[in-house]
Amino acid sequence: MTANLLAAEVAESERERLKSAVVSYGDGVGAFDGRMRTYMMRTFAPHFQAGKCLQIGCAHGDQTSLLLERFNDITVVEAEPHFIEHTRARLGDRVRFVESFVEDFDNGERYDTILFSHVLEHVIDPVIALKKLASLLKPQGRLLVAVPNAEAPSRRIAVKMGVLTHLEALSEADTAAGHRRVYRLDTLERDVSLAGLHIEASGGIFYKPLANFQFDQLIGTPTLSEAFLEGCYRLGLERPTECASLYVVASKGHVA
């Protein structure tokens, strides 16, 4: 792979990898992932820059639909045609779709806001992917990155149970989804900095005491109230390294 393009043989391998991962996504987002989309939007909203928005990866379009509440001009870059077809059927022509890997994308446009949510853990080289997105930012634009957190309490419990060998080990669910890595806040900030970006803000989204499947089973039942979920979100603001997701808001730095 070069600094800007995936070599043809690597791209073909990545397409096959994506096809395999699609199965793990099922027909739509789970209850917990759906809630996480809304918490991510709450976290990122203060950092949105009005104008053109670029979303990298749309899956079934849940986060894209939330972006449409805030942006009139959205381009989605997605490498898996199944996800494009699903999201286009859901949202119609309100969004422009480009079938491409992030490393290969450049339509000549530059963007005010770029959302790179839960994709960085999938790519071959995270720094190369981040450099590409940095090149697509307008001078005052913002890149919003979110990734799974290796240090979430649910993962710490899994290590103690023997389900994971260590905090940064990939679970069966991680592997099935096509993840290549899981981040700590310091390693996420490291990769963003190595890409030449300036970190404007960073933190965690939603304190996570339970595994995803446990949240899926309990959301909507009397056991897990809305107040409890809101409490987890607010506690996450105070304890970022114990959250479900980590985030960074980045820019090109000071522009003369």
Rank of each mutant, 00 (worst) to 15 (best):
E168A: 04
G141Q: 11
G162D: 01
L197N: 13
L167M: 14
E172P: 02
D191M: 14
E172R: 12
A152V: 00
L133I: 08
L188I: 11
A173K: 09
P126G: 12
I128C: 11
Y183C: 07
T175G: 13
D125G: 06
L188N: 08
L167A: 10
L194E: 15
G178C: 06
P139W: 13
A173G: 12
P139I: 12
L144S: 02
M161W: 04
D174L: 14
V145H: 02
Y183W: 06
D186Q: 11
L197I: 11
K160H: 10
L164Q: 05
R190T: 11
E151Y: 04
A134M: 05
D125F: 08
S202F: 08
I157V: 03
L167P: 11
A158Y: 00
D174S: 13
L188H: 07
L164D: 02
L136F: 04
D186H: 11
R155V: 03
D186N: 11
T187L: 10
T165W: 01
V192M: 10
A176T: 10
K132Q: 12
V123G: 07
A195W: 00
L137Q: 04
D191V: 15
D191Y: 13
V192Q: 08
F206G: 05
K138A: 04
P148D: 12
V147H: 03
L164G: 01
L194F: 13
A134C: 08
F206E: 12
L197G: 14
K208V: 01
V147C: 05
G141Y: 04
I205R: 10
E189R: 15
L130D: 10
I199K: 15
Y183S: 07
Q140K: 15
P153K: 00
G196S: 00
Q140I: 07
V127N: 09
V147T: 09
A129T: 09
L185M: 13
L185Q: 14
K138L: 14
V159M: 07
T187G: 04
P139K: 14
I157C: 00
A201R: 05
A150R: 05
V192S: 07
R142M: 14
S154W: 00
G203Q: 07
G162I: 01
P148K: 12
A173Y: 07
E172G: 08
V145K: 01
S202E: 07
K160Y: 05
E172Q: 09
V163C: 01
E151T: 11
D191K: 14
R156L: 03
K160I: 08
P148S: 10
T175S: 15
L188V: 09
H122Q: 04
A150S: 05
P139C: 12
S202P: 06
H198M: 09
G204T: 04
A129R: 09
I199N: 14
L194V: 10
P209R: 02
E168M: 07
P126T: 07
E200N: 15
S171R: 05
I124L: 14
I128L: 14
V145N: 02
L143V: 06
L188Y: 06
A177M: 11
L144Q: 02
G204K: 08
L164A: 04
E189C: 12
A201W: 02
L130S: 09
L188E: 12
L194Q: 15
A177D: 06
L188A: 11
D174H: 15
